[in-house]
Design a protein around this nucleic acid. Structure first.
Lengths: 197, 197
DNA sequence: CCCTTTTCACCTAGGTGGTAAGAT
DNA sequence: ATCTTACCACCTAGGTGAAAAGGG
């Protein structure tokens, strides 16, 4: 089993239609995708990974007039999707369960030629992150037959990839909740308990 | 096979009797232990690790009068030595060979109760770092019978653990060559090609 | 006296959105 | 018009030795 960390923050973003920056060099997600996992076999080895699937085959643009995202055409052609393997993989169930599994080093890029292993997305397209746990029923048997996946999807983590923020309320929420954007805060009244770890 | 990186910098320190700071929280080594490895089987999985063995069973003190280290007694009692496993372990030979293997995140501590997995050393004692490569001849056989070590020792990397630098020339060389100590540089004439990566 | 601990200013390294210029 | 890129000031996070205080 598996729980999404920072669920309330994700929901707050999702209500505004989450945007994630993509750059040529690669940009982290914020919030970062973090889960707590349960019920694994302590001694079995697991691989943890993420990928990103298109929500639909549409392209979007932001209408400043209506302050909403509107369909702007059919989706751009896609590259074969990449998979991000958690850097601690492989590790035993006991290791994964004793702390939050964090994908905070994962980076998104719009560079189709990227050779840094980052996740390649099309800007102005909608994506759904997915979390996969891979395990084997037994160590000694043929790996190709005994490996199994379990996939978790949290609908509140879907987002639109952008090269610059469109919805100003998204920008404000990012500035308010991301510690690295503290330089842009002004009011400084509310404390976002979301800021840490 | 295996080559030490920054060999000339290590030799420069070793001529002055290298000192390494140990703290309660753990302190990185400088220079950090980095090697280039060759001649591995590209598809076999290897573990890389380091440990630190006492050079002798003596305790030392620094004589400011003679500017040398002198024996000050018998060695203090030792804890069962810890082993630092390189965080990329295990990985295939092809992965290890395509870049420098760096132990720059390894930390030394004098805290006998350390629970951060750092290497525990006795201050004012002399140590020799060792580098180990572990591999299996075959994947399917009993691991306990088919695992093998190969150990590499570079005499120029030996050092004395200290809680504060004793030899001022060591301090000067650290300040001149460690990028994080740039704040203490004054002359700023020579460039230590050693500074990067 | 000898050694250790704590705190500090000063760095490296790298993650933010803003901004203006560039591209289509 | 719409979207992308490059650069920037401003942060977080954490690695330095100095200095002063602490301990036996």
């Amino acid at each position: 089993n598996c729980n999404l960390e920072m669920k309330s923050l994700w929901e707050e973003f999702n209500q505004l239609e989450t945007e994630m920056i993509v750059t040529k060099a690669g940009r982290r997600m914020f919030p970062s995708f973090q889960v707590r996992v349960y019920g694994m076999d302590a001694l079995t080895e697991y691989m943890m990974m993420m990928d990103f699937v298109p929500v639909d085959d549409k392209r979007y643009r932001y209408s400043f007039q209506s302050s909403t995202w509107v369909v702007s055409g059919k989706a751009d052609p896609v590259m074969p999707p990449r998979i991000h393997v958690h850097p601690d993989s492989p590790a035993k169930g006991s290791q994964w369960m004793k702390q939050v599994v964090s994908f905070d080093r994962l980076k998104l890029t719009n560079n189709q030629m990227d050779d840094n292993g980052h996740i390649i997305l099309n800007s102005m397209h909608r994506y759904q992150p997915r979390f996969h746990v891979l395990y084997r029923n037994s160590k000694d048997e043929d790996p190709s037959r005994t490996q199994n996946f379990k996939t978790f999807v949290f609908p509140e983590t879907k987002f639109i990839a952008v090269t610059a923020y469109q919805n100003h309320r998204i920008t404000q929420l990012k500035i308010a909740s991301n510690p690295f954007a503290k330089g842009f805060r002004e009011g400084e009244s509310q404390s976002w308990s979301a800021s840490s770890a």
